[in-house]
Amino acid sequence: MASTVIHAIYTDDDVLMNAVKEVKKKHLHINDIFTPFPVHGLDKAMGLAPTRLAITAFLYGCVGITVATLMMNFIMIEDWPQNIGGKPSFSYIENMPAFVPIMFELTVFFAAHLMVITFYLRSKLWPFKKAENPDVRTTDDHFLMEIDATGKDGEELANFLVTTGAVEINLIANEA
């Protein structure tokens, strides 16, 4: 069956927020909203689950500090201990103050880069990726709400969306 969606375009963030609440009240399904800037509170209004990227950053940081510890323990203590200024070369923990800077740097390095890579992969962002915003105006000053209209009366839906403040409504039929 061909699925249809409705693209409702708004020109103001506050109008959009109110519209999202109205649409939610009607129990319509919002597929996506494309905005030119982060509209605060929009994710909550749409009912999006909170992102877990911060948690991944913490875990990646743990990986970083572990890598740093294992690496320096192997290099400085196990593989080739050297007497450097009389610092204890036989025990990681006793020589640790000298290793703190690198432990810190690698924690940050792993947490930052792996989190950003996770973000890029989850949001499908990479070079040569085609942009998927349906209307180029959504990176300037327009806001586009995509609503699932499969099996619904387009006319009625359009009239309802006009009352929420939409300035342009397009019905898109996906041949599938």
Binding site: D32, I33, F34, T35, P36, F37, P38, V39, L42, D43, M46, L48, P50, T51, L53, A54, A57, G61, F104, V108, A111, A112, M115, V116, F119, Y120, R122, S123, K124, L125, W126, P127, F128, K129, K130, A131, E132, N133, T138, T139
Partner: peptide, 26 residues
């Protein structure tokens, strides 16, 4: 990188900015 400005992307974007700021400060 094919940025489309989805609500979910923005949510992640803001979280990533905040965590990166927290990491970059120290």
């Amino acid at each position: 990188f094919g940025w489309s400005g989805r609500a979910k992307d923005w949510q992640r974007f803001e979280e990533v900015s905040l965590v990166l700021a927290g990491l970059a400060t120290p």
